[in-house]
Design a protein around this nucleic acid. Structure first.
Lengths: 235, 235
DNA sequence: TCAGGGCGTCAAAGTGGCGTCAGGGCCGCA
DNA sequence: TGCGGCCCTGACGCCACTTTGACGCCCTGA
């Protein structure tokens, strides 16, 4: 899902060369809060998919340029995004080919909008559960490990308890491991936009984190201060 | 997939009360190398699913005992196994209900065997990629056990009665065992989107759960509060 | 050599979250 | 109509976390 301002918006790519179908889908999907992108032929569909990273694709088989099965294969080469095939041809050979090429569902025209929407929800639901695990959830430093998914920190096997603020800082730095994170960014993301000047907070909390995590808190090896600039997490 | 001697065998659970349908499916699926299990009513289906851990379920909606949507919900309570619904009724209301209850696909009788097999392959393919690390239906903590399929909790052999709200919280935490679940997520998933600020509810209900489940409710070992962040279930 | 800014450290408030208990309202069931 | 289970609400004490202030160090530039 595309995430904007903390709200997950589902993006749907509609691929069809019949304007009235595209129009009907756009109206219905937009009304239900989906972000709708469209493409009118196979080449445009592949481009649009690569670009807008949709959460689900609705694909008509009768495209002017490329055969539908090839579009499916083109997508399946690099993404597991759910694909719902629309087709006027109801014969079973087409269905079998499309599904075996990698489509997730097959709906015959004319279709009921209710049914299509329900199948769309089902496809998105599946996509959401299977997609996730991308990012590596557990990061290992020399003297401690950070589990970003479980929000746990372990040191010498024992779990270390962090307060919400401590965790917020550590998470931010670990997600940007190796990179310098400016003071302003830390303050902004952990405390909020109104705290850009409270650099003293950072000194206090970084000291606390080092005391809890560093083998030698006064000679930090992982939670590095870059004077005047910001902080950096090193493995 | 069930793995035996290095060879992956796909297990299909067929649920239908019409013997000739079951027979036709058994013959066709077995011929293609699937391991076929069958059930003739909803109760048996839920039992068989918990027992044989199928890779895909083919479910007829017109069962003699339980409504089809309830069977789907019963399965979805603890597993993400793909479910393909078969139904004689082609009307769109049924389709929408079944799909929204958690079905993955919907095929209207009479169906072509080719098409059903293609949809089955598509469902299995998806299931294989998403294949979460085989979630267990029954989770054992030190002092109690949670049966996600049966929605039951046992402590010292005796069943513990939970209210719907208590169960909702426990289920959510157990499904995310080890992971921290933010307060907002608990409120959102148990009470609904409008209750994001009612953190007091959580304190009351967590106390109730601890009183019922923890050996030492004031020193919880399994239902852990992470102050300011959320809750965590530990085995 | 001195002044100043940035940083680390320690300790002392204060305050907000948490656990707990008890009461009240609602709804389904007898 | 009464009863019991369940959900919600309010009050209160406690503790952990956040915030704040004071102080000394180091480095840099004047």
């Amino acid at each position: 899902m595309t995430v904007a301002k903390g709200v997950a918006v589902t993006t749907v790519l509609v691929v069809d060369d019949e304007p009235q179908i595209v129009r009907a889908l756009r109206i219905n999907l937009t009304a239900r809060g989906y972000d709708v992108r469209t493409a009118h032929d196979g080449a445009a569909a592949l481009r649009a998919a690569a670009e807008s990273k949709p959460d689900v694709v609705v694909l008509d088989l009768g495209l002017p340029d490329i055969d539908g099965a090839e579009v499916i294969e083109g997508l399946r080469g690099w993404t597991t995004v759910p694909i719902i095939v629309l087709s006027a041809r109801g014969d079973s050979g087409d269905k079998v080919r499309a599904l075996d090429a990698g489509a997730d569902d097959y709906v015959t025209k004319p279709f009921g909008m209710d049914e299509l929407l329900a199948r769309l929800r089902a496809a998105v639901r599946r996509g959401a559960t299977s997609a996730a695990p991308a990012e590596e959830a557990v990061v290992e430093a020399e003297s401690f490990t950070v589990d970003l998914a479980a929000k746990k920190v372990r040191r010498d096997g024992a779990e270390v308890h962090l307060t919400p603020t401590e965790w917020g800082i550590l998470e931010l730095l670990v997600r940007n491991r190796g990179k310098l994170v400016p003071q302003k960014q830390v303050l902004h993301e952990v405390w909020g936009p109104a705290y850009a000047g409270e650099t003293h907070y950072l000194r206090v909390y970084l000291a606390q984190l080092r005391r809890k995590l560093e083998p030698r808190p006064s000679r930090p090896r992982h939670l590095i201060t870059e004077p005047g600039m910001g902080y950096r997490f090193e493995l």
